[in-house]
Amino acid sequence: MRATETLTGLVLALFAGVMLVWIIPAEIPRGVAGQLSPRLVPQVAVSGILVLGLWIAGAALVGGRLPAHRPGPFSRPELVALVVLPALVLASIWVLALAGPVPAGVLLVAGAALLMGERRPVALILLPAGSLTLGWVLLYRILGTTVG
């Protein structure tokens, strides 16, 4: 846990350093004379992150006192969900471009239900049907827009 804290602080500091040295100069123009530089606020925010990141790392290393927060370790099912659910959404966006909104919506809802361990056929039919009908009423009937 203490190692996580130290690592978190160091990663934040590293991120801030990279932003300060490379990304901000490359991605933000210098600006016009006579007004506040466009770089100023990003630089102030990133400098704050740098200092605070080092502080977090240092406090976890030196101080015996742990911060009130417990960084909970990732459990295995959480890690799986973190990868699988976003992947499912990306897959359904891809299907949307290939096959249109209905297959994409079915894949999203039924896929998520299957991944969550739903096996009853009735639920696997009703949930996508209900969700898609609601989505269709909202997007096509009420708002008059289209998807795809």
């Binding site: 659910l85 499912l88 959404v89 359904s92 919506g105 999203l108 809802v109 039924a110 896929g111 998520a112 239900a113 969550m116 361990g117 739903e118 639920a123 949930l127 996508p128 969700s131 989505g135 909202l138 997007l139 708002l143 827009t145 998807v147």
Partner: peptide
């Protein structure tokens, strides 16, 4: 949860799309 997650995920995608 196995029913909540798919339904909420769908609504979120619709909201983010809009």
């Amino acid at each position: 949860t196995r029913l909540v997650v798919p339904a909420v995920l769908f609504l979120c995608v619709v909201g983010a799309w809009l």
